[in-house]
Design a protein around this nucleic acid. Structure first.
Lengths: 220, 220
DNA sequence: CAGAAACTGGACTATTTAGTCCAATTACTT
DNA sequence: AAGTAATTGGACTAAATAGTCCAGTTTCTG
């Protein structure tokens, strides 16, 4: 996609200066753009980015081709918007679950919620962000967006661990950032295995292991 | 792919009875088939299954279209062969590393080897099997093949843990199968984060956590 | 209200892609 | 060596796909 090999471009302006992409300037335009991104996000979640065609997005969003290319320079830009949309959604959910968390039992309730959510979908789909990461981590721009999302996700864990720590009156145990990365890795690995093995067990085992690890490092 | 909607098929024989796929019957044919699978495996590893075209496989393997369709009914069958080939490769490597492992320090050396291997490739690509799992776990046949591969991988861990246990003279501690699934989840999650964040740190943290967990459960 | 700007519909193009087909070649069997 | 089976080359097709283009419509702004 986007293979423009034409010689002698009129003006070799850097990509950032004059994108042929429009930011919506009216409420109607914003709604159209949102409809497109929402439809694309759902399709990408179900079939992956490479297997999602612009035509399918058009059909699902009831938009027209010119609308898609009015708001997005090319498919890559749409995919980037999908990543951001999906990150918003996943991080929103987890931030909601983690926001008030300040104890080991709260962490265990979070674990139960994640397992229940996974069970509800028969372990299908895995983590929407994790799947995107596996597919799009070799492309610089998408990789960067996903890396930032994972970092923010880890930040939510870190904040929760800090609350657990201060509530228990502990000054400083292990490195909280390291703990949060290990937790996120367990979650991602557990979800991937759950998806492939169609069982929540690996997810449960991975999360329980990570929780034990957090408890030990935090001295709880 | 493979959307045959023609009415009135000559004989509605079940797929398993008369595949239009040939098993190579000569050494030359076997070599051709192997060349095709090898080339396809490399391309799929680098770009994913959906982004690998038959034409690219043909070019890389120096085969012709009729050769590909002589040995594989369609692209899906080729992808299935790629999964098996990749599983062979990954499991072969890890079985080699795990075969004689019978101590905690051996497990730590395995960890160091995995981290070093990941570092060597700048964390690019992630786990070849994990990436395939993320992409192909929603398709029954490919999911089954990947699930079986993961199960065998976990089996190698389990066997190593059993050797560690018996060598230390411990009768029975935790469920070794559970330990091996947690270890595999840590490995997969760690590799995914390493790939996206372009750092071996999450991998190191996830594996160290899992090793501590194994040591604790095995009473070592 | 009038002109400008934003937005929309959808036909059209150029490529790419999976898959078919058959004639030609090479290997195996007796 | 002849005949049969396996293998190979590559042209061809039909469908899918990303992206272009422009004329028409709606919304905004002075």
């Amino acid at each position: 996609m986007n293979k423009n090999v034409t010689a002698l471009p009129k003006t070799p302006v850097p990509k950032t200066s004059m994108p042929n992409t429009s930011v919506p300037k009216t409420a109607r335009g914003a709604a159209t753009r949102a409809r497109i991104v929402d439809a694309a996000t759902e399709l990408v979640r179900a079939r992956g980015a490479a297997n999602t065609t612009i035509d399918a997005v058009i059909e699902a969003s009831k938009a027209s081709k010119s609308q898609v290319y009015h708001y997005f320079a090319d498919k890559d830009e749409l995919v980037l918007a999908v990543i951001q949309r999906q990150a918003e959604c996943v991080l929103g959910t987890h931030e909601g679950l983690l926001r008030k968390l300040n104890s080991l039992s709260g962490l265990r309730r979070w674990r139960d919620a994640v397992v229940a959510l996974t069970h509800q979908t028969n372990c299908a789909g895995g983590c929407p962000l994790g799947s995107l990461a596996a597919e799009l981590s070799e492309t610089p721009r998408t990789r960067a967006a996903l890396a930032e999302s994972f970092a923010r996700w880890a930040g939510h864990f870190e904040a929760a661990f800090a609350r657990m720590q201060s509530r228990a009156g502990i000054t400083s145990a292990g490195d909280l950032k390291e703990l949060s990365e290990a937790m996120l890795a367990s979650l991602q690995g557990g979800l991937l295995l759950a998806q492939t093995l169609r069982s929540t067990r690996p997810l449960e085992l991975a999360l329980d292991m990570a929780i034990d690890h957090v408890a030990a490092r935090l001295g709880l």
